[in-house]
Design a protein around this nucleic acid. Structure first.
Lengths: 117, 117
DNA sequence: TTGCTGAATCGATGACCGTCGATCTGCAGC
DNA sequence: GCTGCAGATCGACGGTCATCGATTCAGCAA
């Protein structure tokens, strides 16, 4: 499957000014790359990645008070991570009385998974 | 498929000290999370994500001199991004004379894709 | 050897990130 | 009202990041 096609500079000479006019282009456009990178960056932290993992495995809503004792960071730090995930559109939250419940919005993760394909 | 199971605190009372002993655990362990997050972080930048995109679409080796004109950053910045990708084990490089060729090591991306499911 | 070229590295700069303790905001029960 | 709790926000801190121009290094060719 992996064709060992080699993209070489257009000229063999090392001296000529016009070495290589680009013949290779990205398949994802800039905007899409920005969006995908935003999602990837959001899970680019071990705690946030594990948070998403927990929330995905429980296909429902999880109380924050269940999440805090799982990680060795302060409550404010965890809240900060959850906000990052919310800002990236990976999760959303819902308050019920005193407690806050978080759940996964599959769209963002699915987009990234599709690109990684 | 998505069961709307709701994980609530173990006690209904808002006053009691032992509100919620954790019953939900991450499926990926800490080490695996660190590794996956490292890969995600590496593609958590639009330029690096597009770099990986280009290299993946060309299932071969691409000359750096082809990559530089595709992005609106200096040569040193692009070299820095390529190094980040190399450090994360996503790509590797090979020099041939004056030119350097980069190519994808599918392992890292595949790991992340597998977790994203 | 001398000169040029492609790519990596260096040093600096300004922005952002993860973390913490402290504080603030709502809600529940008294 | 008041008190206590869960969670979000604030302010500060040290560390890391993306970016640049300048420099260095290795290879090719007069």
């Amino acid at each position: 499957m992996t064709v060992d096609l080699q993209l070489e500079p257009k000229t063999k000479r090392a001296a000529g000014a016009p070495c290589c006019e680009p013949v290779v282009y990205p398949d994802v456009d800039r905007e899409q790359a920005v969006r995908l990178a935003e999602v990837a960056k959001a899970i680019g932290d071990p705690i946030r990645l594990q948070l998403v993992d927990v929330l995905r495995k429980h296909a429902g809503k999880v109380c924050v008070c269940e999440l805090v004792p799982l990680f060795d960071v302060s409550q404010s730090t965890l809240s900060h991570h959850l906000k990052k995930l919310r800002d990236a559109g990976i999760v959303d939250s819902e308050r019920q009385g005193l407690w806050a419940y978080y759940y996964v919005l599959p769209g963002a993760i699915d987009e990234l998974a599709a690109w990684l394909g």
